[in-house]
Each structure stands twice: as C-alpha cells, then as structure tokens.
Nucleic acid binder design. Structure first.
Length: 289
DNA sequence: TGCCAGGCTTCAC
DNA sequence: GTGAAGCATGGC
C-alpha cells in the first residue's frame, strides 16, 4: 500500500520545494493502534480509508497514516511529524509502564485495558477540542462526526495537500461571527448558540491556552466552565484530550453506567492519581465498542 | 415508533 | 445549593 502512495507522492511532489513536500516517515512504535484511537471518541475527523490506512485532519494539519503491524508510515513533512504529529499522538509516552500499575485483581479494568491495547490520549488543539465536545453533548458519535464535518466545510479554510483538498477546523473568529441559523444548518441544533457564544468568549480572552497552562487542574476546569455551553463533563474532556491533564475523569452516561455496574463501591481514584483519565478512556472504549 | 446520545442552561424553590 | 424542565436531531 505504501508503495502506491510513494508513487503518488513523487507525482505530486515533482515541482515542489523540498520543505513543503510530503515524505514517508517510517517508525516502529509500540502500544499504538490507530484504529482503536479512531474508535475511542476522542477525535471526530479520523477515518480508515482502507484496511490499515487512516486519514486524519487535526486543526489545519492533514495526515495519511499506514500501518503494517508495529511499523507505521506517516505521510507528511518530516518537520510536521516532529513538531506536530509525534506530540499529537503522545508517542513519547510509555503507556506500558502506566498500565503496569493497573490492579491485576480488577478483572473488569484489566479486560478493558487489554481490549483497547494501543489506545493513546491525544494532545488536540484547545479550541477544536472545546467546540467538538460542546457539540458532543447529548449526541451520538456518528452524528457528532457529521456535525463537525459540516462545520468545517462551511466555516473552515479550504486547504490543499499535494493536490488533495480538505477543510481545516474553523477559527474562533469565523464561528463567533457566524449567523446563528447558518450554524444551525450544520445540524448543531440547540448547541449552535453554545458554539457561537463560547467562540466569542474565547476571542475576548476566556480560556486562553497560555493562562490555562499555568493553572492547576481545578482552576483550569473552573476557567473552562466560564464558557457558555461548557459544563463539568465537557471541561473534563478538554482537560484530558487537549491539555493532557491525565487526572481528569469525564463522566458521561456511558461511564456513569460503568461506575454503577462495576464500581458500586466507587472507582479507586486514589490508586490512579494522575492517570485516572487514561483509564477512563479504556473504560469508555470498552463500553461503546 | 420510541428511546437515547461523551450535558448544558435556566428557573423555581 | 439542588432538582426539574427544556432543548434539536438522528442513530439504532
């Protein structure tokens, strides 16, 4: 498969500046399963084009990723891999060492961890994570994907990658100034107003990423919850999936059911201080897949 | 056809 | 501070 893409790469890259040219970056990576990540409900713009080949748009970046066992082929600029995608997928973190701390007598958690081997907590763009998880509320994942795609096609910048057109995630300016009924036409329903007003607040300086970075988890959560349409659950998702605060533990209807059924005495947060959010994601994956 | 979805804001008390 | 009501839409 990667041979075909290499040929395409040569075709499109023939007249390009080498700096702007995609390359095939080959890596052997442990504990990394793109399909599991795609189905984990963290990101909504990742698809499997064909078995083993994934297409992902994050912010204004586009990546085609091909997998052959533990060998991965990243089709992007080398610099983009180093400065963006490696961090995005959290590839410098040793997940095996984190998972070794899972209580072996906790059969359910052990099952979930083994069932979602290769899951990683992404480091997504702050604004994109805020908006996509505002859209996620009282919504199902197929419809969230459609809503986000509608939003990107309507308000995102059209980009080109070696002749291939795609839409970047919209900027706060675009969504803050958007006509409310146009936003509703993206099938956002009542969330359209949340998206518009939260975008306006972000433009005015609420939830500034530089400010959030210096805050404790609790203070950052409080700051995020100043955004219209962001409550405790969405704030926890942003803390976990964008700011990589791995102690954040979003509780939605699925996790509530898991906790009620498998942890009637309470989830052992004290054992997993600082990493409970990672385990939450394994529990979530087990529940929805 | 009806329930439910990675919940939130508003309002009454 | 707490609890109930209302909210858009489509997947299953």
């Amino acid at each position: 498969m990667h041979i075909t893409l290499r040929m395409r790469l040569r075709h499109f890259g023939c007249n390009m500046n080498p700096e702007d040219q995609n390359q095939v970056i080959e890596k052997v990576i442990e504990d990394f399963e793109p399909e599991v990540i795609m189905r984990s409900g963290q990101c909504f713009r990742m698809t499997e084009e064909r078995p083993g080949t994934f297409l992902l748009i994050a912010g204004s970046h586009l990546l085609r990723l091909h997998q052959e066992g533990k060998k991965f082929f990243f089709y992007c600029r080398k610099r983009e891999y180093e400065e963006f995608w490696k961090g995005y997928f959290d590839l410098d973190t040793d997940y095996a060492s984190i998972l070794r701390n899972v209580d072996p007598s906790d059969n359910y958690l052990m099952h979930c961890v083994n069932n979602a081997s290769g899951l990683r907590i992404l480091r997504q763009d702050l604004y994109e994570t805020i908006i996509t998880f505002i859209i996620s509320q009282r919504n199902n994942i197929p419809r969230i994907r459609r809503c986000v795609e509608n939003l990107c096609r309507r308000y995102g910048l059209q980009m080109k990658n070696e002749g291939e057109c795609y839409y970047a995630f919209p900027k706060p300016e675009s969504l803050a100034q958007a006509n409310l009924s146009d936003l509703q036409n993206c099938n956002l329903g009542y969330r359209a107003e949340y998206v518009k007003r939260a975008s306006g607040q972000i433009l005015e300086g609420t939830a500034d990423p530089k400010v959030l970075q210096g805050m404790s988890d609790a203070d950052a959560k409080e700051e995020l919850m100043k955004l219209f349409g962001v409550g405790t659950k969405v704030a926890d998702c942003v803390l976990l999936f964008s700011l990589h605060r791995t102690g954040a533990f979003p509780v939605d209807t699925h996790i509530r059911q898991v906790l009620d059924k498998h942890y009637p005495e309470g989830f052992p947060f004290e054992r997993y201080e600082g990493s409970a959010g990672i385990l939450q994601q394994y529990l979530f994956y087990g529940e929805v897949n």
